[in-house]
Design a protein around this nucleic acid. Structure first.
Lengths: 254, 254
DNA sequence: GTGTCGCCTGACGCCGCGTGAGGGTCAAGC
DNA sequence: GCTTGACCCTCACGCGGCGTCAGGCGACAC
């Protein structure tokens, strides 16, 4: 039977010597033998155990749980099932993470607002002169801003009142759906979300379902925006976001 | 202007008071004001910054890098791209791991109960004599998923044929729906999506609609998966994802 | 003999907080 | 005006999973 020293084991398994020392210290993997000089000597059985440890570590299981799994003498199927559960959970988290990164990337690349003021400026009640210069500076190059600016420039006071009334009726529909206890996936909530989209689409700039999703995420991500909805009704921001996503799903739009 | 105390901020943002103290200590988020009694007072601007921090933290960026991003105005896009790569790599690894576990599980279920040999095969006692040289050479310099590939090569193909046939019929249904110009929200597409789910559910592991959605997202996010579908038909990956979401919607599953 | 590895055992450091201890502050109710 | 209880403060230690020295011994080639 061959035995292996720390360095070789470390190389083969892609861990560091320190890690092996650590596993020895905490009793997770104690090499079966030692040379006369005190060198750790790993047998094949030790390596098989290490292999399992490495697999579990890749799932980011804490070391003591790994020890429990390996020493507990469990049924192999149970063992596998539990392992699979763990991996799937992690997989879900990572998928979420990718989505989050993508959203962040889109924001960055579109040079979308870093600050809440800008968001409020574009979509909110604002549109006051003092903000306009600054906002245009940062938003000037985006299509959405150009369209919005082009259209709203010609709005009369009456138009603005109509816009405001529309916005309020959309919001009311959302609040009512939520208060009625309807889920964001309900037709009522989705219809309200669709009305929300059409309102922006008609009044400000072209807005498809995909971009609507991004707005929805911002409603929750941006505190100022969140506040707007939360002031209307607690929990409304998240509700609106979910309803918008559900509505976009319904329209088969990525 | 309103200001907020630690506790309220913590509640709203879903972090702990200690975390805010920590961010203050390390200079990541120093509240703009203090009350006479020394209470931390967070302004709206502070909250906006915290919001960004929270987002970046979900991407598991270390605090100093977050600080650099927020303060330095460094290239956030590059940063995010790299982050995305990392996560995708890990996603691929875990996906491969799940596949390996599923294969092992299937063998366990369809054939005999667990024997030490089978465990050995899953986790790879790759250090048995005949295999040793080759394995060492490979394992020494390649990453974990190639290890896995090397080992799964030894799995019997007998079990796979039935599964493969099913899988093909599911895929065929999806391709046909798409070629027929039916939207992902059509009954045909959704039925095919449901068949897809049931196939995995019956053959591999329990799979509800919610998790099916996550798989669907992965089909688009993970290039290896995407390729599988794109090879069958251009645009199929996104189509499948949308069909799966539509199907999950139909089943009222969040 | 003498390099140059690789191995050993401490022991401290790092990150991102959790978790007290010990004590001040604030608003409400009596 | 005094108590109560929720909230806030500042230390300061702990943890997981190692990384990273430091100081010294063992193995092997020349």
């Amino acid at each position: 039977m061959t035995t292996w020293t720390v360095g070789r084991v470390a190389d083969v398994f892609g861990v560091t010597v320190r890690t092996l020392h650590h596993y020895d210290e905490v009793g997770l993997l104690i090499p079966s033998e030692r040379s006369r000089a005190g060198y750790r000597l790993y047998t094949d059985a030790d390596l098989a155990r290490l292999q399992q440890i490495v697999v579990y570590r890749r799932l980011e299981l804490p070391l003591d749980e790994i020890a429990a799994l390996l020493d507990g003498g469990e049924d192999a199927v149970d063992h596998l099932r539990r392992q699979r559960e763990t991996v799937l959970t992690r997989l879900g988290e990572l998928t979420e993470l990718v989505a989050a990164i993508d959203r962040a990337l889109e924001r960055e690349m579109n040079e979308q607002p870093a600050t809440p003021e800008e968001m409020k400026e574009l979509f909110g009640d604002g549109f006051s002169d003092e903000y306009e210069a600054e906002a245009q500076e940062r938003w000037g190059q985006t299509d959405a801003w150009k369209q919005s600016a082009a259209r709203t420039k010609r709005y009369t006071k009456a138009d603005w009142e109509a816009v405001k009334a529309e916005m309020e009726s959309v919001n009311t529909a959302l609040v009512m759906a939520k208060r009625a206890g309807l889920p964001p996936t309900s037709p009522e909530a989705m219809d309200a979300a669709e009305a929300h989209r059409r309102h922006i689409h008609d009044r400000f700039y072209e807005l498809d379902h995909a971009f609507h999703r991004r707005l929805a995420d911002m409603y929750v991500a941006d505190p100022r925006f969140t506040k707007t909805y939360e002031d209307l009704e607690a929990g409304l921001a998240a509700y609106v976001r979910d309803a918008i996503h559900a509505n976009a799903d319904r329209h088969g739009d990525a």
